[in-house]
Amino acid sequence: MTYLIIFLLLGFTVLFYLTYSPDISAIVIKKRWSYDNSKFVNIDKISVHYIDEGKKDAPVLIMLHGLSASLHTWHDVTKTLTKDFRVISLDLPGFGITGPWEESKKYDSKNYSKFVEKFINKLEIFSYTLVGNSFGGEISWQLAKNHRNKINALILINATPRLAPFKNWLIGWKLAYLPITKQLSLYFLPYFVTKNSLRRVFKNKDIPFSKFQQYSELTLRVGNRAALISLLKSYSFDPLLFAGDKLNIPTLVVWGEEDEVVPFDYTKEFILNSTNTQLEIVSNAGHLPHEELPIKTSKLIKIFLKPLID
């Protein structure tokens, strides 16, 4: 019995050592994951990380990432877009370098859309196209509904108007949501959790270690895990999202056909509630076609927005 206890204690110690993942300070995260052209602006009492690149007098694209992502998701697709557009991406509150809101703020699409509106006004941008992936697509739609006169076009990439079905959730989201594990998720982030999650969102399973490291460390930014728990706990579908007249803004819906997270029926809701939609299906891509196939995705965007740059 003594040997069994010792063995169990040793096993627990090794498991703790291998999986314990303390928060990483905002200063360290900023140093490791900022780009040379990173910028910061204060909104809602937080320092918002963003990138503003391309031609300053060109049509503006505002890029909004999804859950557990960051502006880094747009890095490769932006390389070709900046030849014709001014491209602005940001880390939404609770993600990336930006970090969380104050505790009283509810993490829902309405508050996020209000936040993005403040960000856009702060940069004094009066005409733009919204590009949203996943949850960023819902935020984009919220903005489009309320500011139709400012928005030139809407681009939705594997977008969803609601959280994916629980059975489709990434393992990290499930751990952050379930009562029995959500507190543990504040202190532990085993490598297999990040690995499993990324292998779910990418069609190509040959993912470089640097990608695992990026997603893992930005999740560990102090406050981000608590923000995710808060978002998953408080989020609810907005019954007014598709209320009223259908959206008549030119809308491009890009769909990575191997998406294991968001069902196409969810994305289809945007199509059914728009009068001016074009659907482009991207083969050999999952939930993040702009990361897996950035050249193909940027080409679709440029063709669709050609009237803006002619």
Rank of each mutant, 00 (worst) to 15 (best):
G137D: 10
T194A: 14
I180R: 05
I180K: 07
I171L: 13
A144K: 04
S134G: 07
K145P: 04
R199M: 14
E138N: 15
E124A: 08
Q183A: 11
Y177N: 11
N133I: 13
F192P: 00
A176L: 05
N196T: 13
K195Y: 15
G132A: 08
Y107M: 00
D108W: 08
W169R: 03
Y177K: 14
P165R: 11
Y187W: 10
L178G: 00
S140P: 01
A153R: 12
L156Q: 10
G136A: 09
Y191A: 11
I180C: 05
K106F: 00
N196G: 14
E117A: 14
L184E: 05
N168A: 06
P179A: 09
A164I: 03
E124G: 09
F166G: 04
E102Y: 02
W169G: 08
Y187I: 07
A159C: 08
Y191H: 14
L186T: 04
Y107S: 01
N196I: 12
L186G: 07
G172N: 10
L186H: 01
E103L: 07
T129A: 12
F192D: 04
L170D: 03
S113R: 01
N133W: 09
L175W: 09
F119L: 07
L175Q: 10
Y128P: 13
D108E: 13
E138K: 11
V193L: 13
K122W: 02
G136L: 11
G136P: 04
F115K: 00
S113D: 13
F135A: 05
E102Q: 15
I157W: 12
S113P: 03
Y112G: 02
V131C: 02
K105D: 02
K106I: 10
K110E: 01
S140K: 02
F126V: 11
